[in-house]
Design a protein around this nucleic acid. Structure first.
Lengths: 174, 174
DNA sequence: TTTATGATTGAGTACGCACTCAGCAACGCC
DNA sequence: GGCGTTGCTGAGTGCGTACTCAATCATAAA
């Protein structure tokens, strides 16, 4: 992960990865059949990490705004606290080495969010948009804010708050 | 560009590019010193194309919302009309083969937007956020909407309108 | 027609990569 | 101490890549 974060996915040969991991190149291939396999495993692990950071302490009984705020802060703070993982995840999201299965299994822990959004739309708390649009807005804005925070860490807390304002006023009803 | 759009940047050897272009591989290297050089040239060309599509007919005398709406529609419609260029641009934005100079020169035509945003903030038409945040919100939402449109072309017009609603209510003052 | 100039060609070259596999070390069991 | 099992090793292999360059061709001036 460190390798991918600082040198990029395409510029990380297996020789460098194994050296950084302190094992021989062959060892790497006893645990992962191919390099793509390793990349997919890393993707799933990071996704699970995000899910754990966000979904575990979700205040399921509070109102929509509070829950969304919790999601937002959880996700964005995770990104600020784990810059390497964030960078790598951003690369992997757009990479075509990630299989459809990996994407599906990486998405699974977040299905609950979609259900939440559906309910909120039905209750006219969120605007009547397709839930995918709402979800996509959330993640697009979150990723944007995370790079802002990484570029100017002093204002990190401001960016986090501003980002949520933009999100909420962008998708809340009325 | 077609090559990069359909096979990806990393999976497009110069042999395939030159063949698709109908010239010998050597010819390619008489016009571009390296492959990176070609990629950077393509990046600048696409950026200029976007700028031409958006900035040329900007209604500079109308109010902020109208101008922003024009920018939004111009950018997003360009993406829908030029899916290959859009895909390639999305890849190049995150690629590390693009030099700092290329990025700077690609950004130049859009400097006017930043000035517009600054004025609008001063007039309290847009919220008091850093202009970079406003600009980043615009492009993050636009790119998000463009992939929505590409996935479900029938609803393209809806997505374009929804996207602007989200943007405007997200950054407009009050 | 001859000749000079410059563009085009594509087989060739050097290199970096993912992946392999014959050997080696460590460990427990008799 | 012998012996089987298991995990680790890293030089080696084959392939795909970016890039080169001597030869060829197209054009137009003399």
């Amino acid at each position: 992960m460190k390798m991918f974060a600082e040198r990029g996915l395409g510029a990380s040969p297996t020789s460098a990865i194994s050296k950084a991991a302190g094992v021989a190149e062959g060892t790497l291939f006893t645990y992962f059949k191919t390099k793509d396999d390793l990349v997919n495993a890393l993707y799933r692990e990071i996704k699970l990490d995000v899910a754990a950071a966000i979904m575990s302490s979700l205040p399921r009984t509070k109102d929509v705004r509070s829950r969304l705020h919790h999601l937002w802060d959880g996700y964005v703070s995770w990104g600020a606290a784990n810059p390497d993982q964030r960078k790598v995840l951003a690369q992997l999201q757009v990479s075509d080495t990630i299989t459809a299965e990996s994407r599906a299994s990486g998405y699974a822990p977040f299905a609950e969010i979609e259900a939440m959004a559906r309910d909120a739309v039905a209750e006219q708390i969120l605007r009547d948009y397709p839930v995918q649009l709402i979800a996509a807005t959330l993640s697009a804005l979150a990723e944007m804010i995370m790079v802002c925070m990484a570029q100017d860490p002093k204002k990190a807390a401001h960016y986090r708050a501003w980002g949520f304002e933009i999100l909420w006023s962008g998708i809340a009803a009325k």
